[in-house]
Computed example of a mutant assay.
Amino acid sequence: MKKIIAFAFILLSTHVLHAQKMVALFNGKNLSGWTVHGTEKWYVEKGELVCESGPDKQYGYLSTDKKYKNFELNLKFKQEADGNSGVFIRSSIEGVKISGWQVEVAPINKNTGGIYESYGRGWLIKPKPEDEKHLKVGKWNTMKIRVVNDQVTTWLNGHQMVDFSDSKIGAANGFIALQIHDGGGIKVKWKDIILKEL
């Protein structure tokens, strides 16, 4: 009996430690744990995180206060109007000039799930054209981003979009950030932003 109890305790401890690695980056109430960069609009409405073009119609970012190296990030997004946006990984920022890598969130046939290096090499990898069909226009989409050392893999609605290895990404560390593109007329909603550190 003692062995059974000890084994159950070990299993419970392992489960607790695993659960502790899961972090809700967005609490559904406010922007606690995040920092706004730029004049674009970031607000919470009905438990959803909304980014919307502001009066300057420029780039805007919402970055985590904490840096994350190796992780698996799951989130949901819905594009309204022109949905050009993205999720930055291992990034840093000065003003509204961001350095890092963006997993694209964009309208159909605009490379959602691909990886773009901001102020650097540009597009590193784009999804196959036939994979664009996995984007649900005007509806909630699920995205998963897995970053381990120099490997980045993305999924859209359960379908793998890209799997990419890069030494420059592997050497970096930084925050996660959501982007709103410049140009105006853009609105994207986010929810269920859950991160597991690896």
Rank of each mutant, 00 (worst) to 15 (best):
L49A: 01
H134T: 13
L49I: 01
K67Y: 04
G54F: 06
E132M: 09
H37T: 04
E104G: 06
I93E: 01
G174Y: 00
G120H: 05
K41N: 11
N157Q: 07
N109R: 13
T39W: 02
Q160G: 11
C51F: 03
G33L: 06
L124D: 01
D182N: 08
N141K: 05
K187Q: 12
G158Y: 13
W123E: 05
T14V: 15
L12Y: 10
S165L: 07
V87M: 06
W190P: 00
K189V: 05
A106N: 07
D182K: 06
T35E: 09
P129V: 07
K189L: 15
W42K: 05
Q179I: 00
V152F: 11
F175A: 06
K126N: 11
I169A: 09
N30Y: 05
I169G: 05
V87E: 02
N141Q: 04
M161G: 08
K139A: 08
A8I: 11
S13G: 14
L156M: 14
K21N: 13
T39A: 11
K187R: 12
V162E: 12
Y119L: 14
Q58H: 14
H37M: 07
P127S: 10
N27W: 01
V50C: 06
G60K: 09
I5V: 15
I176A: 00
L73M: 09
K41L: 07
I176H: 01
D166W: 07
L135W: 03
M143F: 06
N141I: 01
D65C: 04
K139F: 05
T64E: 03
E45L: 06
I180Y: 00
S165F: 07
I125E: 08
G138A: 01
M143V: 11
V137Q: 08
E80W: 00
K2P: 01
I10P: 04
G47Y: 08
E117I: 13
G95E: 02
Q151V: 15
N173E: 10
I108V: 08
N74L: 13
G158R: 11
S118W: 02
I176L: 01
K196M: 08
